[in-house]
Design a protein around this nucleic acid. Structure first.
Lengths: 257, 257
DNA sequence: GCGGCAGATTTGTCATATTATATGCTGATT
DNA sequence: AATCAGCATATAATATGACAAATCTGCCGC
């Protein structure tokens, strides 16, 4: 009988993840998946390299082969692993990883501020969010606009309280993408949300460097409410410029890798 | 002992999927995952609805509980399912689905031409591919440009041979995104590639409606080779306009849903 | 040199038992 | 009547052991 499972890896319920939508860690196999996933994203196990065989690895992790196999299936579903009889289970080449998966992206940020990953993320956001805002301005329903306004007001009320302002900020961006009516953009939104949450998770523990640009958010809101696509687009561009500066400052202050 | 596993669902090795990168169907649990995944995306099992319990469902599918559970883990990893003791396994709300996952998107197209899904896809492509081309024009290495040229030439040679021209076309777009150096864009590319492959899979079986726009591709190639970001961007915009017309024609001809 | 065959290794699948967890009910308590 | 603790129950979660299937390796015969 096993005494300690997953030795040295307790779940800290106090961890802030700001409600990010990631694979559940309630279950044992979920914990194993996260653990191995983080190792892969950190580069501890390089692409092409094989995991120990199931018998050895399950013993090493103090879990049954069943739990380990289910964890492996989760990671394989995200493109990280590939199993074959006799050959074993190996890490797939990086271009097979589904970086758009919220978990994968969260694991990429798990170690702390990551300048290269932040840059990728900003590039994507700068490509998408202005166009998305323009679409939202054209298509948002009254109730969606009302929800957006509520999220903005929550940000105003939250002020400097990071634990309240960050979720409101994330909510705002998610609602914006939802207003486009395009499900792919919505999924892209939760992916980005998770990545930002993973980033903020570290940031809120350290010195405060993140300042949410309220005026820019208000400009976006009002443009969408007015149905002005062009104004919404330019407002989001300004918002992202502001955010980029803020995050760069923060990353520079916290052992930027 | 079981005679026929997964009754009525044989794997057709002759199916054309144009090398799309999806979860392996070699294994039994992989087949089960695809089968249930398609059912969910088709709407046979609505969000909020529960699957039969593991004992019943595994018996119904003629597989062991183990295989079924591993399939469920794959689907849960993609955000489609959620399992809890006592409650059972239920389909999550649609906004939790990771539509950016190649498998999920492929299942969305599995039934045949899907006008709504095609529209989503085009919207996304029109947002990011022009920007990606501009980035590629700035950053592509000599060898990447050379690869792009090879892919284009393969398209030229292929001509009307769909089985050769479509893979070359997909390769071209993938290489373009790879040239941006942004891993998120690359993943986005394989997602789109899979979706297009799923679409083409049907199309190549029916009457020919897809015509690859060679001149537009050549314009993109030359702009990138010349390092002209603006030209690359406009060339891609024209390319997508052409593609949109072509697909719309095709969808209209084949029981457009 | 080469093709194929035998053996060994590893994942894949199965069956079964036990445990953990969530849910709803029941009945006591206020 | 409402609330809450505890109990029963259904279900997934985990563990274990056995066997099957795949596939790589190297040897053997030619």
């Amino acid at each position: 009988m096993r005494e300690t499972r997953l030795a040295g890896r307790q779940i800290h319920k106090t961890d802030k993840n700001f409600g990010a939508r990631t694979y559940s860690t309630r279950s044992l196999h979920g914990q194993v998946a996260h653990q191995i996933g983080e190792r892969i994203l950190r580069g501890d196990i390089a692409p092409g390299q094989s995991l120990p065989n199931e018998a050895d690895l399950s013993e090493e992790l103090n879990v049954s082969r069943t739990a380990l196999r289910e964890a492996i299936k989760v990671l394989a579903a995200k493109g990280l692993l590939e199993s074959r009889p006799k050959t074993g289970t190996r890490v797939r080449s990086r271009d097979n990883w589904n970086m758009l998966d919220p978990d994968v992206l969260a694991w990429l940020f798990a170690d702390g501020p990551n300048a290269a990953a932040s840059e990728m993320l900003f590039e994507i956001r700068e490509i998408f969010e202005p166009s998305a805002a323009a679409m939202a301005a054209t298509r948002a329903s009254k109730s969606q606009i009302s929800d957006l306004r509520s999220a903005y007001e929550a940000m105003e009320v939250a002020g400097d309280d990071i634990d309240a302002s960050i979720p409101a900020d994330l909510k705002f961006h998610q609602l914006l993408l939802a207003s486009t009516g395009n499900e792919l953009l919505i999924s892209l939104g939760s992916m980005i949300e998770t990545a930002l949450a993973a980033n903020f998770k570290v940031s809120s523990a350290g010195p405060r460097g993140i300042v949410i640009a309220l005026p820019q958010h208000k400009a976006v809101l009002e443009a969408i409410a007015a149905g002005d696509a062009v104004a919404a687009q330019t407002a989001v561009i300004e918002l992202l410029q502001q955010a980029r500066i803020s995050v760069a400052t923060f990353n520079a202050a916290n052992n930027n890798t």
